[in-house]
Design a protein around this nucleic acid. Structure first.
Lengths: 114, 114
DNA sequence: CCGATCCTCAACCATTAGGTTGACAATCGG
DNA sequence: CCGATTGTCAACCTAATGGTTGAGGATCGG
């Protein structure tokens, strides 16, 4: 857990584009070639290829060159890092929900918040 | 849950910079002014102010103008959205761990892969 | 009222992002 | 060997990022 600084950057950046998130979603179902990944997208193959490279540099996708086609495979480990980072804040949004819940359960007359 | 398309983009993009993640981390402890948030960073106040604006546009931070200072408050709800998006993939990295576990349990003599 | 403080805004700059097109390397199917 | 398929690469464009500086608007402390 050392080289996290720039790594987390690249993972979140990779997730910050709908086309790339969609790619990940389809790779979750099964391995796909670059062409397969590009097909449903409204952009050129070269553009989609760049998106795959972004995912690759973030460690979210690995590639196996099989003849003339490049088969992409989901590499979920970096997602776990991002998940872990967000997990720290889980307490804050659940607290928010708890506070909301408390508003409905607590007698307003007893309210003595800090 | 409708306007998710560009919203998730902006949240992940906001998280894709260490300075902004650090800001969120310190806001988790308590509300801070823009100057407080800028102080530990190696950049100008104006630059830090822009980062705060990015967090604000992503809905991660709200601002209360108190006199001449702008007090920032952590707004964790969008983090929950990002967390929920990642949660879908949790199954894949835990599966990976299960597969690894299986490797250690299987008799190596039965290994028949290439 | 006056100076210091807090912060935004505008202008500017360099780099990256995201997209296009065209050329080409490599492979597969005959 | 030849043509079609698959994908990258290079060049180019526009727009967005991330940073700087300088100016100035409010506001607070006397």
């Amino acid at each position: 857990m050392v080289e996290v600084r720039g790594h987390v950057d690249s993972v979140f950046h990779a997730l910050a584009h709908n086309a790339r998130r969609e790619m990940l979603g389809r790779l979750a179902v099964g391995d796909l070639t670059v062409g397969d990944l590009a097909a449903p997208l409204t952009m050129s193959l070269a553009a989609a290829s760049k998106h795959v490279q972004v995912l690759e540099r973030a460690g979210l996708v690995s590639r196996t060159v099989a003849g003339r086609r490049h088969v992409c495979h989901l590499e979920p480990a970096p997602l776990a890092s991002a998940f872990a980072w967000l997990r720290f804040y889980e307490r804050y949004w659940t607290e928010r929900l708890d506070a909301l819940d408390a508003l409905f359960r607590v007698d307003p007359a007893q309210e003595k918040e800090s």
